[in-house]
Design a binder for these strands. Structure first.
Lengths: 263, 263
DNA sequence: TCATGTTCGTTAACACCGTTTGCTAACGGT
DNA sequence: ACCGTTAGCAAACGGTGTTAACGAACATGA
């Protein structure tokens, strides 16, 4: 294993110096152990000392790689957002490109599945910021969150654009709210093809409802009595779709969701 | 101030011995300081040592009053549930008893208002259990949560009973789900007057949606771009009410909520 | 009044945690 | 071979929850 002769220029595209490579590997190890601790013991179980112990080194050494515990949590949170976005995108791509309705269904269901199979991650990403210092710099996580939001909303937008969804008229929307929706559409990259604010509004409201059901399920606030929240998710999905004028497609799950005369 | 002669029987109804009185006062002080720390610094800022320091005593002394930090958090969580239930009940009572729709509106709005004015409390009560030991005994908090749920659902139930809400037929509900809804109705004290499972289902779904909007607002997952979430709450409320066949009553807030062709 | 048992709060100690400081040793490029 | 950069370490400071042993204040019965 002779050392590669191309180590002189770390800034060269793609190839990294040996030093940078092992450094990156160490950082990856830190993140992966932190992630495992997060999954196994919750966010409270993530500590620099424990990570270092498991790596066979001491806690201060980790400060060569990470500015502190808060920053580490922010970093892995960003990673998890990207991971979630990828899972949703994969589910979307798994459906036939022309089957708009199915793609939307499977993307939303993928979000739920990822959430309930990654409760610890979901809690950190979508729950209240309880552990971090209130004035910590969480921009990386926010950026990743926006990245996720962008892919998600872009997906919904493209899908909704094909169908003719009934949208609220611009005049009916509070001007203050309109302004907020505009800036929102901007940050999420939605306003490229001049989408009406009504679309942003409808998308946002749909997102809020999906978020709500999933939070309820993951945080288990009905879990002491309801074991399986899937019917509620499906009912919400159905209500959402029909409200959008989109045909509801039952999943492969436990059969029909609850019918929906009131909701 | 001679000592009251009735100190021999602490079990006597109402009157407590002097010792028990100061003990209770100390416990109250502990809880109130803990609560203040929770509000000012978030749940991560609640510590036995800090509380003891502020009380002019040492941390181990608190163990005479509380089994540990987790138990203390559970206790104050239970208190907060009762407080929330009281706030909702008060809002309900503030409306004319015969005005069913208004009572429902003001109760739901009271829930939101309490939540956004008590974000730290709400996060502990309705967010993920992130700080507590996963196998800690949280039954007091669960009981208080059930207490809150009971008053809330009883309120909704009584209101919905007056009106003729379209309910899903029993045959259309998955039997497995029916069983869960039945046990749910039991724990929440809803099945006293033989309410159909459809009612429990509709109530649950409404609750999920209210919970969802409020979580979104309190946890600020749209807060980086949307400053005021009230329109979204009102829109959801309107959609909910009309879906229930109940007239929507606009609040005193910023005027009309968003119209609702799709949602 | 005196003795007794209970309760309260203390100090000391253990085991964790995040973080800073100063050091040593290895590495990498000249 | 030289020398600057970097990785990792030990020590230390202050914070946390929790347990054990002890003393003092208290309430009660003889």
């Amino acid at each position: 294993m002779t050392k590669s002769p191309v180590t002189s220029d770390p800034t060269a595209g793609g190839t990294l110096s040996r030093r940078d490579r092992v450094r990156e590997a160490t950082l990856t190890e830190i993140k992966s152990i932190a992630r495992r601790h997060l999954v196994e013991q919750g966010v409270a179980g993530v500590s620099l000392r424990a990570i270092a112990r498991e790596m066979g080194m001491t806690a201060p050494g980790l400060y060569r790689y990470v500015p502190g515990i808060d920053a580490l949590l922010v970093i892995i949170t960003a990673d998890m957002f990207d991971e979630l976005a990828e899972a949703v995108a994969a589910a979307d791509a798994s459906a036939p490109p022309e089957d708009t309705e199915l793609r939307l269904h499977s993307a939303l269901r993928a979000f739920r599945i990822w959430a309930i199979t990654h409760p610890a991650e979901f809690s950190v990403m979508f729950g209240p910021r309880t552990r971090l210092d209130p004035d910590a710099d969480i921009t990386p996580a926010l950026e990743a969150g926006n990245r996720f939001g962008s892919t998600f909303f872009a997906l919904c937008d493209r899908l909704l654009q094909e169908k003719d969804i009934p949208l609220p008229r611009d005049e009916d929307i509070d001007p203050e709210l309109t302004a907020e929706l505009r800036s929102f559409a901007d940050t999420v990259g939605l306003s490229a093809h001049d989408v009406p604010v009504g679309a942003a509004l409808v998308l946002t409201r749909c997102w809020i409802r999906i978020y709500g059901v999933v939070c309820m399920e993951v945080f288990q606030h009905l879990g002491f009595v309801v074991n399986d929240m899937e019917p509620f998710f499906e009912a919400e999905l159905q209500n959402l779709m029909t409200g959008l004028g989109v045909r509801y497609l039952p999943g492969e799950g436990k059969g029909d969701p609850v019918t929906d005369p009131a909701g």
